[in-house]
């Protein structure tokens, strides 16, 4: 049996049924999995994105922190450097002063010693002169010496004294 190609008949009911059956199967096997997958993927991507954003923020913060720390450290270092410099300066200065002081003190000591020595020498000279005078007088008194002997004796004594004084 034939018919023209523009026709409308019972095939349409079968087409309708097949459409709904196909739609049912496709919803079950294609659309639901697809939409679930898309949703899941979107959620995953959102999560990952949020995580990445957080990580970025953290990194930024830590960077800032570390920069701050670095700055602090820098300041500390410069402070320490300056302190050390100052200390060295101070130390140097104090050392100089001490050395000067020592020098001065030694000088003074030496001077004092010299003075004392001189005093002692003077005292000893005085004592010697006194003893000499005493001996001389005692000799003069005790012995009768001629003039020649006297002079010789005096000269020797005086040269002795001069030698001692020079020492």
């Amino acid at each position: 049996m034939t018919g023209i190609f523009v026709n409308f008949n019972g095939t349409s009911i079968l087409q309708l049924m097949s459409f709904f059956l196909l739609m049912y199967l496709l919803i079950k096997y294609l659309y639901r999995p697809f939409l679930n997958l898309v949703d899941q993927r979107r959620n995953d991507i959102q999560d990952e994105y949020e995580k990445a954003e957080e990580a970025r923020k953290d990194a930024k913060e830590s960077k800032k922190k570390s920069e701050f720390q670095l700055q602090e450290l820098d300041e500390k270092i410069s402070k320490m450097y300056n302190e050390a410099k100052e200390r060295v300066k101070k130390y140097e200065e104090s050392g100089k002063a001490r050395i000067q002081k020592e020098i001065e003190s030694t000088m003074e000591k030496a001077r004092r010693e010299i003075v004392e020595e001189r005093l002692r020498a003077e005292e000893s000279l005085k004592a010697k002169v006194v003893t000499l005078v005493i001996t001389l007088t005692s000799r003069l008194i005790q012995k009768d010496l001629d003039e020649k002997l006297k002079r010789e004796f005096l000269m020797s004594q005086l040269s002795k004294l001069g030698e001692e004084n020079e020492k």
Partner: peptide
């Protein structure tokens, strides 16, 4: 421009089907 049709025992226009389309 002609198509093959098959008659089935159903009333009026529902009784004819286009087997190739099916």
């Amino acid at each position: 421009g002609e198509v093959w049709q098959v008659k089935v025992p159903l009333p009026s226009i529902l009784g004819t089907l286009n087997p190739i389309t099916i």
